[in-house]
């Protein structure tokens, strides 16, 4: 348990460090970082590299955004195995539907409840 925590902590932390270096060195906006990481995770998931990493690091690999990309790739592969070519279209969003819906609903909830605030 402690070991699982440490593995997730270190692996997740290191992925964030890669993001930080990209922000500071290349002046990429956070939007571009997010896109880059999801696409990278999806490619790594596609070629089968990310899966063993997930098995090792657990939430350290699934919580950062490459994990979201990995989920898309994994979903596509599973759907193709189950239902053939149509899985190319349905697999990605099917596997990530929970996360996306959660983010949409949580965002809407916030828009109803909260007022925009200024930075100090």
């Amino acid at each position: 348990m402690i070991f699982d925590f440490l593995k997730a902590f270190v692996c997740g932390g290191l992925i964030c460090v890669v993001g930080q270096i990209l922000i500071d060195k290349t002046k990429l906006t956070s939007a571009r970082i997010l896109v880059l990481f999801v696409v990278a995770g999806c490619i790594l998931g596609g070629i089968g590299v990310y899966e063993p990493f997930v098995n090792f690091a657990g939430c350290g690999a699934t919580t950062p955004l490459p994990g979201f990309g990995y989920l898309l790739a994994k979903g596509v592969k599973e759907e193709i195995d189950n239902s053939g070519a149509i899985g190319i279209f349905t697999g990605g969003l099917k596997s990530s539907a929970g996360g996306i819906s959660a983010a949409i609903l949580a965002g809407l909830f916030c828009a109803v409840v909260f007022q925009p605030k200024s930075k100090k």
Binding site: D4, F5, L6, K7, A8, F9, V10, C11, G12, G13, L14, I15, C16, V17, G19, Q20, A57, G58, C59, G60, T62, T63, P64
Partner: peptide, 13 residues
């Protein structure tokens, strides 16, 4: 970034 990101992932774990 390492400690905050790591902490989020560790807590998730």
């Amino acid at each position: 970034a390492f400690f905050s990101g790591g902490l989020i992932c560790g807590a998730a774990e």
